[in-house]
Write a protein that binds this DNA or RNA. Structure first.
Lengths: 343, 343
DNA sequence: TTAGTAATTGACAGCGCTGTCATTTTTTTA
DNA sequence: TAAAAAAATGACAGCGCTGTCAATTACTAA
């Protein structure tokens, strides 16, 4: 039914080993022979059997995406990006959700990697930000690629795809400054996440660049949740507070922004007339608020595909065609930010 | 490094074939022998190699989850449920997002099934509701399990796990009726989805059961989106309208409800004092609105695990331990519904 | 007891592919 | 032009497991 390597070999008039060489892109096959084989592959619509490849060779054709992240949108984007790269290169993707707080997570993942003969792993925050965990895996002879927040890789444990949250945060803060805002609040995400730290740095940097005094009271701790946004905004905008009321809020992600938006409405503060609110991530969430959120777009699918390609080229020991490995989320101006009315 | 079937056989003092029998739960192995083997398996922490099993046998140990659904939360829940069943039974899960509107989808999936030697498939709406598509797959000798909306399977193409949206919708409508509401609007989801149709039936049934006249004008077409909710609620609650203004809105899912909630706020209608709004699905979304949504909880993870178990028992040709195959989403009363003020 | 049946076990081939290494062909060098 | 080196190809074993079928052992009934 399905064509096997034998069928191809017969059709091309060569040995199966030669076919194997061609489909694995090995050198030392004459151009003419290669073409004959390739033609036979086409004609028979041959696709190598993954199980057989995994079993026979020292190599494996499976990679895994290990994650622990409450953001379903993010995960789905990642999965699709990785899958797209896998499909093109004939690899198989196993997904492995897990709990970063679990003490046995390292053991669990090591076990899975060994058992399923995984060639490589893709890690996203927060797992990618756990050095011990990453080190254990790298020592295990699996290739690893991490997606992380920052401008350059923090170490050389593995190749990384960096998401420059700092610069993006600076840009988005600058956008608010350009609109005349000076009292710009910051509602933070989970303090343990690099992304929060980086976004905070960008925020500070933008203020500094425009010589705006930094007011500690305008920084609220949060945790990347809607509720954080609600309580953060309430705290910031409460009339009883003796702080300066900000005219703009930089929320560490769209969920927080949505929460802030909601709180503002409850307090009869109109957006964006009286208060500008910006998010981060450009999740579908940000289009389901009203007004729609100004935010920073992170092309997660593409980042994931990039990471997967990086990983696959590693696994296949190809010369590292190092692709762009740094992304800077881009400002998307929508309706939740406007000129500062205090000016 | 990793123990193979040979190691286990040696340790237990039997042939590898006997080990194979034990790990595959075949009959005709003496109890004593079985125990010896099981002990060896334990001692060596042996886990059969999936690639080898897939290659050697006529059977396959991989199943796939094929989906096309914009709801990331739903997909993630499904994946985790299925994975959980797979892990327990030593199966591998491949995920395959796709586009139901694509003409070639059947070909695409057939190809993947053949290529990856997939033993079984899990289908969710809308794919599970495409009879032609399902039929093609079933004819292909892959086992299929569908998750669908309804009370009984619409055909016997494959086993189904049914989600009784109708009864749940009736219950949730009844909840509104119990609160004294009589003018209850209905904002529909995508008209092509069975779930919309079923929920609508339940809504009608509840009205009828309480002898409440049905008012066609209170039914709004929508599409499971936030925007649907916004525009639907606006239309319903607009003062210019010469319709009866409803005192309660049944939204076909939480996203619609969130949209309706938002529109209500914009129109200065307080929830739930002046208007009750209920959702459906109990997505994380429903906890991120304010007030939190009264909704119907659908245990997606469990439904998925159930479906996977059904599929696996099929694949393994075990006697059909038919588990519960109908779920009725349960009413969750939160803060968006209250006594009707018109009474 | 003893053939006769049923339950248990094992030997062996082979799934589709890759790794090793030997063989053949081509190219280079002297 | 022959010998040496390099490149291209193929024969074959074996990855870890399951299917087939034959061999062994345990249990019946006569």
């Amino acid at each position: 039914m399905k064509a096997t390597i034998n069928d191809v070999a017969k059709q091309a008039g060569v040995s199966i080993k030669t076919v194997s060489r061609v489909i694995n892109n090995e050198t030392s096959v004459r151009q003419l022979t290669r073409e004959k084989v390739q033609q036979a592959v086409e004609e028979l619509n041959y696709q190598p059997n993954l199980a057989a490849r995994n079993l026979a060779g020292a190599k494996s054709f499976s990679i895994a995406y290990i994650y622990d992240n409450p953001n379903a949108y993010y995960i789905i984007d990642m999965q699709e990006g990785i899958l797209s790269a896998c499909k093109k290169q004939g690899f198989e993707l196993l997904i492995h959700p897990c709990d970063a707080k679990n003490k046995n997570i390292t053991e669990e993942v090591v076990n899975m990697v060994k058992h399923a003969r995984i060639a490589g792993l893709i890690l996203t925050p927060p797992l990618s930000e756990m050095p011990e965990f990453v080190k254990t895996l790298v020592d295990l002879d699996v290739k690893v690629v991490r997606i992380m927040s920052g401008d350059v890789a923090p170490d050389d444990l593995s190749p990384c795809v960096m998401v420059n949250d700092r610069d993006a945060a600076q840009t988005i803060t600058q956008h608010l400054i350009d609109l005349g805002h000076k009292d710009i609040a910051f509602i933070a995400g989970d303090a343990k996440h690099m992304s929060t730290i980086e976004r905070y740095k960008g925020y500070r940097k933008a203020l500094k660049a425009s010589n705006i005094d930094f007011d500690k009271k305008l920084v609220i701790e949060g945790d990347y949740s809607f509720d954080s946004g609600v309580s953060g905004a309430k705290q910031l905008m409460s009339t009883e507070s003796n702080n300066t009321r900000p005219t703009a809020i930089f929320s560490c992600n769209d969920e927080i922004a949505a929460g802030a938006l909601f709180a503002a409405r409850l307090m009869n503060i109109s957006i964006p007339e009286q208060l500008s609110i910006v998010g981060f991530e450009n999740s579908p969430f940000s289009r389901q608020t009203w007004p729609k959120l100004t935010t920073a777009d992170q092309p997660n699918g593409q980042i994931a595909e990039d990471a997967a390609n990086l990983l696959l080229s590693q696994v296949r020991k190809q010369k590292n065609q190092v692709t762009i490995s740094q992304y800077v989320p881009k400002l998307i101006v929508r309706d939740s930010s406007a000129l500062c009315s205090n000016v």
